[in-house]
Design a protein around this nucleic acid. Structure first.
Length: 868
RNA sequence: GCCGGGGUGGCGAAAUUGGUAGACGCGCACGACUCAAAAUCGUGUGCCGCAAGGCAUUGAGGGUUCGAUUCCCUCCCCCGGCACCA
């Protein structure tokens, strides 16, 4: 009697055997064909793995297994991005310290990954909240500090008055707190920054050489946002400053008349503006400052002060979303002051408006309404004049923003736009009224967080408040545990007695530690390097010793780094395009400059897995639409579940969740099992007989297709090829054991447990015949010496191109582009022979009749088309 | 608004240096097995036809071509990202 394949018995068996044999271990120093394949590590959440996790980690495990079977020395580690808010929130709610809940979660997740059948080597895992890890996070901070890439500055942070805590940008959804929906306010705080902006050009230029999705590169380019232009200085001619005209009320009209009659200008006041269109300088009709611009208070005239103050106040009440709403009409207020045009000396009114952003350029723009859409709209509303300086459009209807020929611009006249830009920039530099400047949208990286569950910033302050780096010998600078988790609006570390005492003991009375911790993106900016560091035994049990001494003396061994980096395949969600994937590149570049690593780019090839949605919506805990895979895994097993995910569609597309169809994979698995079982009953006598040629051709075609598909992570088509092959096998009366063994090998990355079980069943037969490359064969038999024979250690089969060459060809015969016949002919027929045979077809002759054939198209080996 | 990716049966999808559209799977229908159901197996599954064969068809419209899901133009819709960046 044929038994059903039972994953609940088979899967744990192989998981245990893999583990015991250490099949995933890679010797980092001896590896000959290193391939570092990395999947972005997860946050160790208390919830069970959801469908999204499975989709991210199941298929990528299959890919890594494929690489391994193809003969690569695959390093495929997994760790935990363990610092972060959820554990802290859990602590606030329950009082369980984050270190405890995190350790528990990590243990659970490792157990789940094991049951999934993933080939991670847990002895090489890591946890970013472990002192042995965050000691390096702190070391990185010190490196940044020493190389003057870290600095302190006051900056506004997002603060939720309800939760009494600072929020990350991702936690502010549409300007409100994601937890309590309170309006988030901005609060100034002194923060640590890293100078990622210094690397903007390298981050931009490096993208060209990366094998990344074009979309992601574009997103990074836009995020960095380099624009080339000029800064131009406009002198200000106030007739009155708040001090000069104290108590005096002057109307705008009177001021104008006094300007002309020659009031004394304040020579030391000027505004610098940034523009990408210096060529339109002669078209400037007004200037606009951001409402927060520091000069606003100085240049506002008494008459305008009330209006200006009211406007500034109103702007402050708006959150970022309201302020940047494009649909809204632009607003602004005149300051009362004028600037002098640097070339013509004309008076230019100065306005403020919230469409000008303080955070970009210089926070001030020269408005050229004839050639800029925003200025055009603003000028029309406030009846400000237009001056055309580039010909080619109709500025009464719309701003003309394209390049053209410069007009009405004195010495720039008749220059085309690019030449005019050069000319005016040179002129401005000669006159010391401006200079060529490149600006970026990318801001320096704010790494301070007023949170508990993160790596403490390794800085102490002397009694005068000056920052000093903590010497390396004191690392890890341990996160204190005597803290209050309830949010108070201050950094939780402030309440640790031990933290303060520790600082004073080491550095002296009156010294204070930095109370902020680091952004978790710092932790994940270099984790791929730490995976390659020394073995960390005992990780998976959570029993490793957290006490000093810490043996690592290097972030990474340089020879290992040279050998294994850059990461050949990096897989993770596209949501990291402008965060993690930029930070990691920046840190790698900085480490290269510090002489720590040899490579500039960490990730050579990047792949984004698709998103699995539920009824079209993103799955999230708060929406309560997260699909739990456990019942399906329990019912069908890990292999079936992961294969189903892979079979759903292209891996990079993701898709909407639905479990209809998983039965198809279940049937596939049972049919394979049935085929092999039935073979074992009857095969022994006849298995030596040679395979029939149709099966052999189908087999080699399958090898080719599966190999090519797996290389490109096209799991869905790889599986369908195997299904087609199974259909062929099922039609046969006899199938040789060798064919089934090759089939099992092809299946192994996709259904590892099933394949191992099949392999065991099929053992003891003749030698493998599918491996043509004798060298490879030898090499692989060497590697498996001493191990039980795992299918995972078998070499990947090669196909024989000779076998794919068919002796016949199927010719499609068309008449006027419509298919009329289908004929099988010997492959060596000439064009004439094919056409003659085609004409003989009854159904073709019928259409040809007596009509004149205008043209005969012959596509060799494929098709004939008669055009009448 | 801008940038990117898409739109193919009842459903998930295959196929593109232009050459038989719908592989593979799900679902559905009928049949076999069964007292029955499930499971399993077989057949069918764009439309008309017993069949031979014919016709239609890849978001809509147009173009290039002997031939277009594939190339070009116009438009519609969906998804993702950015969004006053001067």
């Amino acid at each position: 009697m044929m038994s059903k394949y039972d994953p609940s018995a088979v899967e744990p068996k192989w998981q245990q055997r893999w583990e015991e044999a250490g099949v995933y271990r890679v010797d980092l120093t001896k590896a000959k064909k290193p391939h570092y394949c990395l999947v972005m590590f997860p946050y160790p959440s208390g919830a069970r793995l959801h469908v999204g996790h499975w989709f991210q980690y199941g298929p990528t495990d299959s890919y890594a297994r494929f690489l391994k079977m193809r003969g690569h020395d695959v390093f495929f580690p997994m760790g935990f991005d363990a610092f972060g808010l959820p554990a802290e929130n859990y602590a606030i709610k329950t009082g369980v310290p984050p270190a405890e809940s995190t350790a528990e979660n990590v243990r659970n997740m490792i157990e789940q990954f094991r049951r999934m059948g993933c080939m991670y080597d847990w002895s090489k895992s890591l946890n970013t909240s472990d002192p042995s890890y965050y000691r390096w996070t702190q070391w990185l901070f010190l490196q940044m500090f020493q190389h003057k890439l870290a600095y302190r500055k006051e900056a506004p942070v997002n603060f939720c008055p309800q939760c009494q805590t600072v929020l990350a940008r991702e936690q502010c959804q549409d300007g409100t707190c994601e937890r309590c929906e309170t309006q988030v306010i901005q609060r100034p705080l002194t923060q640590w920054f890293w100078k990622i902006r210094d690397y903007a050009d390298r981050l931009l230029d490096g993208l060209d050489g990366l094998d990344w999705p074009e979309k992601t590169k574009t997103m990074q380019r836009n995020w960095i946002g380099r624009s080339e232009g000029a800064v131009i200085k406009f002198e200000i001619r106030p007739f009155e400053t708040p001090r000069q005209c104290h108590g005096e009320e002057i109307t705008a009209k009177r001021r104008s008349s006094r300007t002309i009659t020659g009031g004394a200008p304040q020579g030391d006041t000027s505004i610098e503006i940034f523009t990408t269109r210096p060529d339109t300088l002669f078209g400037v009709t007004y200037i606009v400052l951001a409402p927060e611009h520091p000069l606003v208070a100085n240049i506002t005239t008494k008459a305008q002060r009330k209006h200006i103050e009211a406007y500034v106040k109103e702007v402050k009440t708006k959150n970022e979303l309201q302020r940047t709403d494009l649909a809204k009409e632009k607003t602004g207020v005149f300051t009362g002051s004028y600037a002098l045009h640097p070339a013509t000396g004309e008076r230019i009114p100065i306005w403020i408006a919230d469409y000008v952003l303080m955070t970009y350029g210089t926070g001030a723009v020269m408005a050229v309404p004839a050639h800029d859409e925003r200025d055009w709209e603003f000028a029309r509303k406030y009846k400000l004049p237009l001056q055309e300086v580039v010909s080619g459009g109709d500025i009464t209807k719309a701003a003309f923003v394209a390049d053209g020929i410069t007009v009405n611009s004195d010495f720039l006249n008749s220059f085309p736009t690019p030449a005019a830009k050069k000319r005016i920039t040179a002129w401005l530099e000669d006159e010391e009224k401006g200079r060529e400047v490149t600006t970026y949208r990318l801001h320096d990286w704010l790494v301070s967080r007023q949170r508990y569950w993160g790596a403490p910033i390794p800085i102490v302050y002397d009694p005068d408040g000056h920052p000093h780096p903590i010497p390396e010998k004191h690392l890890p600078w341990l996160l204190p545990t005597d803290v209050e988790f309830k949010p108070t609006g201050e950094s939780p570390l402030r309440h640790s007695k031990e933290f303060k005492e520790r600082t004073e003991n080491i550095f002296g009375k009156g010294w204070e530690p930095e109370y902020d911790t680091m952004d978790t993106f710092v932790c994940s900016s270099f984790y791929y390097l730490r995976f390659l560091a020394q073995q960390r035994d005992g990780f998976e049990t959570g029993n490793r010793c957290h006490c000093p001494p810490y043996h690592d003396t290097l972030l990474i061994d340089p020879s290992i780094e040279r050998k294994w980096l850059p990461i050949q395949t990096y897989i993770g969600g596209p949501e990291h395009a402008c965060m993690h994937l930029i930070y990691a590149r920046f840190v790698m570049m900085a480490l290269k400059d510090f002489g720590i690593v040899s490579h500039e780019e960490p990730f050579k090839k990047l792949v984004h897995q698709g998103l699995i949605t539920n009824k079209g919506a993103k799955m999230s805990k708060s929406k309560g639409n997260v699909v739990d895979p456990d019942p399906l895994v329990a019912r069908y097993g890990s292999d079936v579940f992961r294969m189903y995910l892979m079979f759903m569609g292209p891996y990079t597309d993701g898709g909407d969740w639905s479990e209809t169809g998983i039965k198809g994979i279940e049937r596939f698995v049972q049919r394979i099992w049935g085929l092999v079982s039935s073979l074992s009953l009857v095969e022994r006598a006849r298995e030596r007989g040679s395979e029939n040629s149709a099966v052999l051709t189908a087999l080699h075609k399958t090898i080719k297709r599966v190999t090519e598909d797996m290389e490109q992570l096209h799991f869905n088509t790889a599986i369908s090829s195997l299904m087609e092959f199974l259909n062929v096998l099922e039609e046969q009366e006899h199938v040789s054991r060798e064919t089934l063994k090759t089939f099992a090998i092809l299946l192994a990355p996709l259904a590892p447990h099933l394949a191992e079980e099949l392999w065991e069943q099929l053992q003891g037969g003749a030698d493998r015949v599918m491996v043509r490359d004798s060298e490879r064969s030898e090499e692989s038999s060497r590697t498996i010496t001493g191990c039980p024979s795992f299918i995972f250690h078998q070499p990947w089969p090669h196909y024989d191109p000779q076998l794919l060459v068919s002796r016949t060809m199927t010719i499609v015969v068309q008449v006027n582009g419509r298919v009329r016949a289908n004929i099988d002919l010997p492959a060596d027929f000439s064009k004439e022979e094919v056409i003659a045979a085609a004409k003989r077809q009854e159904n073709v002759a019928k259409y040809l009749g007596n009509a004149k054939t205008k043209k005969e198209v012959y596509v060799p080996g494929k098709l004939v088309n008669f055009v009448l």
